[in-house]
Design a protein around this nucleic acid. Structure first.
Length: 629
RNA sequence: GGGAUUGAAGCACAAAGGCUGUGCGUCCGAUUGUCUAUCGGAAAGGUGCGAGUUCGAUUCUCGUCAGUCCCGCCA
């Protein structure tokens, strides 16, 4: 029934034949994407990784297209019963090999939708290399409104991956990684592999842990990132390190987050921020050429503080405006609640102006109200600068002196303090600074999405600099490392840093210390992050103290690293870039699963292989592990 | 840990407190210029699972499972 491949070899892929190939004998192999049966004439769309080529099977060779080649010299019509019967038995996703002649299609039967649409293959031999069951879902059909649901497609991931979109994405990713290697190699970086089996350090994200059989009761941990090891390659004198490194974090998933992911991990000796920025910029510039996008030689820069102030986010999407505007000063004497008490408690009042959207309905603003509540905002103030002006708060309380007392004066207020015009919608959030930033920053992005304000062809990179060194932890009352515990404070803030540590009463100064830490942001995605590290043990010791980590604890966790730091550590720094997030932008998708061959679901399962799974008791016994119910 | 949302034939989707249905796919037949073709016919089989309300639930309620998105989390 099925044929053997035998010694047949493929001559072309299904995407490369053109009018110039007319007359050639070719051998194509691939999958049957579609079959159109006309009784004595069958068209098969043959698909491989490269594209689709139309193959023609005729019972009798008498069309004008093939006259010259297939009708015998004496004018006898040739019948091709055997091959034709075979062609009739073809079904979607059968794997076949076709030998045949390339002919030009007549002008009126050219298919402009196909790269190969000007030609077709008249089959002279057909080998059915494998059959296929009817697929559990359709791959790609013209007019198909919706793909099968994602869980079905994830279960049959190998089928979903046949779709051209995923094929293209995974190929793009491969090209990107190749380009990265080219780029790093040309700059004399050394690719060094670091262990996957590491030691757990209870900092940061949850570790995935791996039990040791030989050392019963002890565990390895998978790397959250090769941070310490890459720093050690600097101490080891490699000067420039890189790795395409798999990282593992046992945290909840998001549209752009999976428990395992890949980073370009880079570290350089004798480098300051500028040195690293040049590599980051160069790397992204090089990779984005894959999609014919020329990123600027120097990325725009913005401090963390400025990003938060203007955009309410440390990863602002610069493809659209709608910046946050501060009304705290303007309204400092207001009597209007809750603005008044917010200001009294050290909070702030900020607003965004949505151009031309004064016609938002009550339902729409209610929707937005609910949206900001997700981020902890108490509510959303709004002013619709239409005719008449509408607002969900009263003007007479807004200004204590009441030189503005009626509604039309909102117009002047909005014009003067927010540059808002007739027809605009003003949205206001008041509250704790962090809540205002989070809610209004998210609202800014949400509205841009809803209102289609984002140019899909724009690519806006940004370097966000001067990240804070520490984050206050409400739960423990301590300051945690905002980046990681080896990040260097900024030289300018070194005095503050020391004072905060030496005087218990000035501990809160830690919140003001800035780090030599930075992110690269593209289109609102954090695509890379890094820092200059501490290379002197005194500063490192101070930092542990700031983090509330005793010398003993620090030694227990990073003793080997502290030792290493004492043997002549060069100044060094680096970054890690998210391969998936970068590829998401290159591929124009908003979902990380679209750039990973075998992703997991939002609940961290693999539906294809059904992992994670149980293990045999014998395995557990060998590891000395008991499952507690 | 929490919130939102979805779950009906192989796939997608409409509908409605009482009968479910449509498109695609599948199968059979016809068909020599289609491009996911056209025409005719057929099969298949059901509202994730459990409980409750009800004369009656796919619809309402609760729980649970699964997908997606988000908050928390992600040094």
């Amino acid at each position: 029934m099925l044929d053997n491949l035998g010694n047949l070899e493929r001559s072309h892929t299904c995407g490369e034949l053109r009018a110039a190939n007319v007359g050639e004998q070719v051998v194509l192999m691939g999958w049957v994407a579609n079959r159109r049966d006309f009784g004595n004439l069958i068209f098969v769309d043959l698909r491989d990784r490269d594209g689709i080529t139309q193959v023609v099977f005729e019972l009798m060779a008498f069309t004008e297209m093939v006259q010259e080649t297939l009708i015998s010299a004496d004018g006898q019509i040739e019948f091709f019963t055997e091959i034709y019967d075979k062609a009739e038995s073809l079904r979607n996703e059968f794997v076949i090999a076709v030998s045949g002649t390339i002919v030009a299609r007549k002008e009126n039967s050219v298919n402009a939708k196909l790269k190969t649409g000007s030609i077709e293959v008249i089959a002279t031999e057909l080998r059915i290399l494998n059959d296929a069951k009817t697929l559990p879902f359709e791959l790609e059909v013209a007019g198909l409104q919706n793909l099968a649901s994602e869980d079905t497609r994830l279960k049959y991931r190998y089928l979903d991956l046949r779709r051209s979109q995923l094929q293209n994405n995974i190929r793009m990713r491969s090209k990107a990684v190749t380009r990265i290697r080219e780029f790093m190699d040309a700059l004399d970086f050394v690719e060094i592999e670091t262990p996957i089996l590491l030691k757990s350090t209870p900092e940061g994200a949850r570790d995935f842990i791996v039990p040791s059989r030989i050392h019963t009761g002890k565990f390895f941990a998978l790397p959250q990132s090769p941070q310490i090891l890459k720093q050690i390659t600097m101490i080891a004198g490699f000067d420039k390190y890189y790795q395409i490194a798999r990282c593992f974090r046992d945290e909840d998933l998001r549209a752009d987050r999976q428990p395992e992911f890949t980073q370009l991990d880079v570290e350089m000796s004798f480098a300051n921020q500028e040195t690293v920025y040049r590599i980051i910029e160069g790397f992204f510039r090089h990779v984005f050429k894959l999609i014919d996008v020329e990123l600027p030689e120097q990325f725009p820069r913005m401090t963390y503080a400025e990003a938060l102030r203007r955009f309410g986010s440390d990863k602002p999407d610069l493809r659209f405006e709608m910046e946050l505007q501060d009304l705290s000063e303007t309204l400092k004497d207001t009597d209007l609640e809750p603005f008044k008490s917010v200001l009294k408690n050290g909070g702030e009042i900020k607003a965004i102006v949505v151009k031309g959207k004064a016609d938002y309905s009550r339902k729409q603003t209610d929707d937005l109200q609910e949206f900001v509540k997700i981020y902890g905002a108490g509510g959303l103030g709004w002013m619709k600068l239409g005719v008449p002006i509408k607002a969900n708060f009263k003007a007479e309380n807004l200004f204590p002196n009441s030189y503005l007392t009626d509604l039309p004066n909102f117009r002047e207020f909005a014009k003067k303090h927010l540059s808002a015009e007739e027809g605009d919608l003003v949205l206001i959030v008041a509250g704790k600074k962090s809540v205002v930033a989070a809610s209004l920053g998210a609202l800014r992005v949400e509205i841009a999405r809803r209102e289609n304000l984002i140019d899909k062809n724009a690519y806006k990179p940004l370097l966000v600099t001067e990240f804070p060194m520490f984050e206050y932890n409400d739960q423990t009352g301590n300051y945690d490392a905002a980046h990681h515990p080896f990040t260097s404070p900024m030289d300018e803030d070194l005095e503050t840093f020391k004072r905060a540590i030496e005087n218990e009463s000035e501990r809160d100064l830690l919140g003001q210390v800035r780090a030599k830490a930075y992110d690269a942001v593209i289109n609102g995605y954090e695509c890379a992050g890094g820092s200059i590290r501490i290379h002197q043990k005194e500063i490192q010791a101070l930092n542990f103290k700031a983090l509330g980590l005793s010398i003993e604890k620090a030694r227990e966790r990073f003793g080997f690293f502290l030792d290493a730091l004492e043997f002549g550590t060069p100044p060094h720094g680096g970054f890690a870039a998210g391969i998936e997030r970068t590829c998401m932008i290159l591929c124009g998708t908003e979902n990380i699963r679209d750039v990973m061959a075998f992703p997991k679901t939002a609940s961290a399962q693999d539906l294809m292989m059904d992992s994670p799974g149980a293990v045999d008791n014998s395995q557990l016994n060998e590891l000395g592990i008991k499952i507690v119910e």
